[in-house]
């Protein structure tokens, strides 16, 4: 499972996203004995998407626990342990599986702090793999972050690169609230998926936090704001470079956190460019893209010089067959076409 890493000095040491995530978890487990990890295949296997590689060997089976295929029981267990002062990291192997355990997630984990009038804290990290693009079909390819962001009581973070993956993991573990940590399989740097150069980057060795609730302007530009997240950040940056040669300068915002959303960064960029494109691998309707349009409309519709556009999954289950799947994913082709249309 090792990737193209080289032994290097700390300043230039490069990690894949998955290894950066694991490093963040391990550093917090070293610091705080109440942090533990549980989920399906998080032990000897190291997480199906390498989110827990090496943790069992390092911390032992009392802190890194394989569970039965029993999400209701073990996600609920994480919630109960958190109410008693522990800091569980619980993995839902694919976000698509939330249906078998959603009561524990949205009726218990997310609501207990509120229902208790703030008397009970629930510091759970629910980490889960999202996203498609590798023909895993309709039940193993969804993003669904809009669903979690819609329901009150959960913070939702969605890193796109190794540095943010580590820093957001550490911030999530230290947060006193439930945090849903959603990692796209395509950003993890897995050797058994399409190579992704942005899934490998220099990562500081020390523990650090990327603040939850803070978006990042990952490319500056004056013509079009592309607000996006996760793997779509990579596609958007690629297209931004291509279109720069044509004289179109895109500003790319990596949202990084959906709850709480960094509205100020989005609005100030839109105020500058006057054009907003949302690129979202989740379903189109009633979700993130509509929410961002609403925020602009509620603030000042005159910020937009041309109508808002979005590139999302057009309300269809993710198809299996490759030409169909790539017809509905937010591909570079669709992103480029949308930017050109915004530029008229």
């Amino acid at each position: 499972m090792t990737v193209t890493e080289k032994e290097a000095s700390p300043a230039t040491r490069r990690l894949t996203t998955s290894k950066a995530m694991v490093e963040g978890i391990a550093q917090e487990m070293e610091r705080d004995p109440s942090v533990f990890v549980l989920g399906e295949d998080v032990g000897a296997y190291g997480g199906i998407f390498s989110s827990t590689t090496g943790l069992l060997e390092r911390f032992g089976p009392s802190r890194v626990m394989d569970t039965p295929i029993s999400e209701t029981a073990f996600i609920g267990l994480a919630t109960g342990a958190a109410t008693e002062g522990m800091r569980p990291i619980v993995e839902l192997m694919f976000v698509d599986f939330f249906g078998v355990a959603m009561d524990q997630i949205y009726n218990h984990m997310a609501k207990i702090h509120f229902e208790s009038g703030g008397n009970v804290k629930v510091p759970v990290v629910l980490m889960t793999a999202v996203g498609g693009g590798y023909s895993d079909g309709a039940q193993h390819s969804q993003c669904l972050w809009g669903t979690f962001a819609h329901l009150p009581g959960m913070k939702v973070v969605v890193p796109s690169n190794p540095v943010d993956a580590k820093g957001l993991m550490i911030a999530a573990i230290r947060d006193d609230n439930p945090v849903v940590y959603m990692f796209h399989k395509g950003i993890m740097g897995l050797p058994w998926m399409a190579p992704n150069p942005r899934a490998l980057a220099p990562v500081p060795e020390e523990a650090y936090e990327v603040p939850i609730g803070s978006a990042a302007v990952v490319r500056q530009g004056n013509d079009v704001t592309i607000a996006t997240l996760s793997l779509s950040v990579h596609h958007s940056l690629d297209i931004a470079e291509e279109l720069s040669a044509e004289g179109i300068e895109c500003e790319v915002i990596d949202l990084r956190t959906l709850v709480p959303l960094d509205r100020a960064t989005i609005l100030s960029s839109v105020a500058k460019t006057g054009r907003l494109l949302v690129v979202d691998e989740d379903y189109q309707s009633f979700g993130l893209s509509g929410e961002l349009a609403a925020i602009v409309a509620e603030t000042d519709p005159r910020l937009l010089k041309v109508p808002f556009m979005r590139v999302a999954v057009p309300d269809v289950p993710i198809p299996y067959s490759r030409p169909l799947e790539y017809a509905v994913l937010p591909t570079k082709t669709r992103i480029a076409a949308a930017v050109r249309k915004l530029m008229g």
Partner: peptide
């Protein structure tokens, strides 16, 4: 399920 977690703690 949350009771399991309290017991675990």
């Amino acid at each position: 399920p949350p009771a399991l977690g309290q017991a675990f703690a």
